[in-house]
Amino acid sequence: MTAPPRQTRESIISAAAKLFYDEGIRRVSVDAIADEAGITKRTLYYHFESKDDLVAAYLEQRDQPSFARFQQWFAEAEGPLPERIRTIFIRLAAFARHPKWKGCGFLRTSAELANMPGHPAIKIGAAHKRRVEDWLAGLFEAEGLGEPRMLARQIILLLDGAFAVVLLNRDPGYMETAGDAAATLVGAASSRLQPAAAGA
């Protein structure tokens, strides 16, 4: 019995996601993805015009779950805003301690496609990072912090820098250190509100 087209497409993306994250997009062939998905290469090309389209679909599939995970970690965290931001980094450090962790799929893909700035996967990765930045800026603005966009960019730099350094050194402690720095930045922005609040 033939699987429905949507189920087949999702099966292909799932197989590609596993291989791309484990081995990198350039090392994985279309034949390997078809084998992993248990289909023919012809079937794969029926659903995706090219490997580039499949790479884009892989990142698109990661976008919402990754973003929702950040939101969930923040929502579950306790304490003032700086500690809740720090929690995101602490939870990421726990992920990085898993033996199968290989960094941020969006950053790794962008590195592999650095010479192809117009690639659809690059655009999806950039949109994902902007979405996280917009969310952070919204949190900071809601708290009344000054320059919420600049603060959000600083946290993004700490976040993505930590991804790179942890992957390079295989030491999740760098992610926790980045979390300390993020909490310090947010705490400093929060403290600047106190005089204004006292004089109101």
Rank of each mutant, 00 (worst) to 15 (best):
T2M: 06
T2P: 14
P5D: 02
R9S: 08
E10A: 03
S11M: 07
I12D: 00
I13T: 00
A15E: 02
F20Q: 03
Y21H: 15
E23Y: 09
E23M: 02
G24S: 07
R27E: 12
V30Q: 03
D31H: 12
D31E: 13
I33M: 10
G38N: 04
I39N: 07
T40M: 00
K41W: 01
R42H: 07
R42G: 12
T43K: 08
Y46N: 13
D53C: 06
D53P: 00
Q61H: 12
Q64P: 05
S66F: 08
R69L: 10
F70C: 12
F70N: 15
F70L: 13
Q71H: 11
F74W: 08
A75T: 09
A75M: 03
A75D: 15
A75N: 13
A77Y: 00
A77D: 05
E78A: 13
P80S: 08
E83F: 01
T87D: 06
I88M: 15
I90Y: 11
I90D: 15
L92I: 06
A94N: 09
H98E: 15
K100L: 07
R108Q: 11
A111K: 09
E112T: 09
L113K: 14
A114E: 14
M116W: 10
P117Y: 03
G118V: 02
G118N: 09
I122A: 08
I124G: 00
A127D: 13
K129M: 07
R130Y: 09
D134G: 07
A137Y: 09
G138V: 04
L139Q: 15
A142V: 02
G144Y: 04
G144F: 03
G144C: 05
L145Y: 07
E147N: 15
P148M: 06
P148C: 08
R149F: 08
R153D: 10
L158R: 03
L158Y: 05
F163N: 01
F163W: 13
N169A: 06
R170Y: 02
R170E: 14
P172K: 06
Y174W: 12
Y174M: 06
M175A: 11
E176N: 10
A181Y: 05
A182C: 06
A183Q: 04
A188P: 01
S191T: 08
L193H: 11
A196E: 11
A197T: 08
A198M: 07
A198V: 06
G199D: 05
A200S: 09
